[in-house]
Amino acid sequence: MFVEIAPPTLAEAAAATAAEATATRRRSVRGISRLLGRGVVPYLYLAPALGLLVVWIYRPLVETAQYSFYSWNLSPTTPAIPVGWHNFHRVFTLPEVGDSVLRTVLMIGLLLPFTIVIPIVVGLLSREVRGRARTVYQALIFAPFLVAPVASAAVWEWILTPGSGVLNRATGLKINWLHERVPALLSITGIVGWQMLGFAVLVVAAGLASINGDYAEAASVDGASRWQATRWLTLPLLSPTLVFLLLTTVLLAGTWTFPLIDTLTQGGPVSATTNIYYLLWNYGFKSFDAGLAAAAGVVFFAAFTGVAMVLVWLSDRLAFHDN
């Protein structure tokens, strides 16, 4: 390993042999420490990230699971009273929980066109367009992703203002977008969709770029029409990307919508935009019902784990793999 080719003089050859001997000894010592170390090394590289995960994600998760068996109002001076499964019982019987779950599902469903359908169309059409124009389109569609939620809330509030906002004035509609039940839900998902579209388009572009061009060539040689090739070749090869987008939409819809709900509608009107994440926030920091918030959090965590496992299982079964 460290032995260089020795020049052919005797003295140097002898020195080289000696050096080699020490090197061998050193190597064997190194070998032992490497054997000992080999098992440890990957864990050392993982340690910083894992340590942080444990402290800031999984420790709090466990603590939340503990809170869920207590009744506590978050105040350091009042003791937490153990209540057994009572909080879980409330989670499953309170009608507002069921309503918020339905609304969450609805929001996810309304987001899917933005995170899957339009990105596929954009991705396929982008291949028909070349050069600078394509870069410009991509940049325009990606730009909203860069706008901070606080800023986009301000802009959209202005655009959606009933009397003077540009949307109603341009279209002649008279809708109070943020203060009527159905329009408010549509507005929130529309704004989030507008922000996330750029991200999804980029992911689809990445998926399309990773499809081997040989397939397309083979299809052309076989005389496949454009539509046939897209339907039977491109889309199946893209399916892992689409499952990834479905999974991110389902899991992260709550995180994406939360800041906009909080700044624009505060869950209203009449809780028309209260999804499960906003409900958790309400329980914890508005009703100061830490036990109920924790129990709901644990239930939602379990439910999302289940959904994610089903999706991953489905993608393994259905995905049409390149290799």
Partner: peptide, 17 residues
């Protein structure tokens, strides 16, 4: 454990953190 962080909503870890 890394992938799983997406399953833990911010609202769950917020209070203990």
């Amino acid at each position: 454990a890394f992938v799983g962080t997406w399953l833990v909503p911010f609202q769950v870890t917020m209070l203990p953190n």
